[in-house]
Computed example of a mutant assay.
Amino acid sequence: MANPDRIRRWIRRAGVPDIAEVPGGRLVELAGRGRTYVVDMPGPEGAPTVILLHGTASTAYLTWFPALAALAAHYRVILFDQRWHGRGIRSPRFSVDDCADDVLAVADAMGVERPLCAGYSLGGVVALTAAHRHPDRIGGLVLCATPYRFREKWRERAFHQVFGAFADAIGPYSLRRIDAFASRLSELPEHTWPPGGFERWALSEFRSTSGWALAQVIAEVGRFDASAWLGAITAPTAVVITTRDHAIPVYRQLEMATMIPGATIHLAGTGHTGCVFGAERFVPTLLDGCAAVAERQ
């Protein structure tokens, strides 16, 4: 995992908003699936509902905190920790399909019939999969810094083949370490802190996901490939392209946008961590994407 001192330097240098709190949430039991931490911001009366899906090695709070106030001015906003991240569901294995079904379970628990799903990186992969598996339940997609496949170039194929084999080999040991790690977490994350406490809170959120879990998550996500069914997506879609992204190639984000019928394209001049370390550019573009989809619901 990244060095905490380096993260502190990133926070100071990038001018990340030094906030004093985030909206509080609660643990929600999803029938037959497990328990996760959910935040529900009501928004204006009668507003559409947006479910926010975070990226790998992050939490709902850590990916989305810079955008929450702006989104809540227009939408009911629901965010939750995905399985194997933060205080998300613990399960014998990690799968993208399970994550996609979790989205619908959260929607059912919160009384939402057809949410708009906004996903960042891994969250975009999960949102896409939810729309593919449950086309009658997903009212729209906003896909941010999102890939539709990983194993295209030979270097990518080699990396994911080797990494996948490694993750499979250490799988049983990883599960024991993940369970032990989860048992040491406090039941609920902090959502308020004293002046100057933002960095400590951000590091606490970052550290709430086990590195052993990330190995399994990356291996599973590396197998993802939506090429065969992207053209069948029926949900109104906006693609927010992070134009300085070195993790998810820009051309691949553009390819995805052209393969989804009717998708609109919205450009954010940020890198792959732009949801936080480029929030002043990312958040307005996110709002544009959400508005474009909400108009077509």
Results as ranks from 00 to 15, higher is better:
1 M>I: 13
4 P>Y: 01
5 D>H: 13
6 R>G: 15
7 I>T: 08
8 R>Y: 04
12 R>T: 06
16 V>A: 10
17 P>I: 07
19 I>W: 07
23 P>H: 00
28 V>I: 07
29 E>V: 12
29 E>W: 03
39 V>H: 10
41 M>P: 05
49 T>A: 03
52 L>A: 13
58 S>R: 15
71 L>W: 06
72 A>F: 05
75 Y>N: 06
79 L>P: 15
80 F>L: 08
84 W>F: 11
88 G>S: 03
88 G>Q: 03
90 R>T: 14
93 R>T: 15
100 A>H: 09
103 V>R: 05
106 V>W: 04
106 V>M: 02
108 D>S: 11
115 P>I: 01
117 C>E: 05
118 A>V: 04
120 Y>A: 15
122 L>M: 10
130 A>L: 04
132 H>A: 15
135 P>D: 04
136 D>A: 06
137 R>L: 00
139 G>K: 02
142 V>D: 06
143 L>K: 01
144 C>P: 05
144 C>R: 08
145 A>Q: 02
147 P>R: 08
148 Y>K: 05
152 E>H: 13
156 E>Q: 08
159 F>R: 12
159 F>W: 10
163 F>A: 10
163 F>G: 04
166 F>A: 12
166 F>N: 11
168 D>K: 15
168 D>L: 15
170 I>Q: 12
176 R>H: 04
181 F>R: 07
182 A>E: 12
183 S>H: 15
188 L>Y: 14
192 T>S: 07
192 T>F: 10
192 T>A: 11
196 G>R: 09
198 F>R: 13
199 E>K: 11
201 W>P: 07
205 E>C: 01
207 R>A: 15
216 Q>I: 08
222 G>C: 05
222 G>K: 05
223 R>E: 03
232 A>M: 04
233 I>D: 02
244 R>L: 09
245 D>F: 00
246 H>G: 13
251 Y>H: 15
263 A>I: 01
266 H>W: 03
268 A>K: 03
268 A>W: 00
270 T>N: 05
276 V>Q: 03
277 F>G: 09
290 C>H: 01
293 V>E: 02
